[in-house]
Computed example of a mutant assay.
Amino acid sequence: MNPVYTEKQLELLELLSQSGPVDSTLAAQMLDLPVDEVIDSIARFKQDGVLLGYTAVIDWQKINSHHGVTAFIDVKVTPKRGRGFDEVAERIHRFPEVTSLYLMSGAYDLQVVLDGKSLQEVSQFVSEKLSTLDSVISTTTHFRLKTYKHDGVLFSQDDGDKRLKVSP
């Protein structure tokens, strides 16, 4: 059964989802709550498995020394009787290369996201690990070329149209 939270606790969760870890005193002031209640709520979120962690959103394209590729692999699988897609998903999420795994609607059943050092590394993962699983019927791999927005954060703000103006 899903836990029930107060409206203020939901506001705190929203604040944490937008800002990541925040100082409890500052959060208490922003939400008009006692500091102890903020601390207790965050502890409860963690205990209930609602608050799973914090991640920074980093524009790796601005780091010259960072090279790598992100692959989105659509996977069609045969679900197992009595376990559905969960059994194959559990096998896939154990691979250390996998950063995210989603059950999807549509033509494919699962979407695997992984970060690799090269196209070759992603290719090896697909051919040697993913495709060899008994339940996997087919895969389609897509590569991220550019990030415009991630987790609600815009990556590159357009400074306007830089083309030369041409008048008739």
Rank of each mutant, 00 (worst) to 15 (best):
1 M>I: 05
1 M>T: 08
3 P>Q: 06
3 P>M: 07
4 V>N: 13
4 V>M: 14
7 E>K: 10
8 K>P: 04
8 K>Q: 13
12 L>D: 07
13 L>V: 02
16 L>E: 06
17 S>T: 08
18 Q>K: 14
20 G>D: 10
21 P>L: 11
22 V>I: 13
22 V>H: 08
24 S>A: 14
25 T>W: 05
25 T>Q: 15
29 Q>T: 01
32 D>E: 14
38 V>H: 11
39 I>Y: 04
39 I>C: 03
39 I>Q: 12
39 I>A: 10
40 D>N: 07
40 D>M: 03
40 D>E: 10
41 S>M: 05
41 S>A: 14
43 A>Q: 10
43 A>G: 00
44 R>N: 01
46 K>D: 01
50 V>N: 04
51 L>G: 02
52 L>F: 00
53 G>F: 09
54 Y>T: 08
54 Y>H: 15
54 Y>G: 03
54 Y>N: 05
58 I>S: 10
58 I>R: 12
58 I>C: 09
61 Q>G: 12
62 K>D: 09
62 K>M: 09
66 H>C: 10
68 G>I: 04
68 G>C: 11
68 G>T: 05
74 D>N: 15
74 D>M: 13
74 D>S: 15
76 K>G: 05
77 V>R: 10
79 P>T: 07
79 P>S: 09
79 P>M: 13
80 K>C: 01
80 K>G: 00
81 R>C: 00
82 G>F: 03
82 G>C: 08
84 G>S: 09
85 F>D: 03
86 D>R: 12
88 V>G: 06
88 V>F: 08
89 A>Q: 12
89 A>M: 15
94 R>M: 07
94 R>C: 01
96 P>W: 00
97 E>H: 02
106 G>Y: 06
108 Y>F: 15
111 Q>N: 11
112 V>N: 09
113 V>A: 06
114 L>N: 01
115 D>F: 00
116 G>K: 09
117 K>Q: 13
120 Q>S: 12
123 S>W: 04
125 F>R: 03
127 S>G: 02
131 S>D: 10
131 S>G: 12
132 T>N: 06
133 L>P: 03
134 D>G: 04
134 D>S: 13
140 T>F: 13
143 F>Y: 15
149 K>N: 10
149 K>P: 05
151 D>L: 13
152 G>K: 13
157 Q>E: 15
157 Q>G: 05
160 G>M: 06
161 D>T: 01
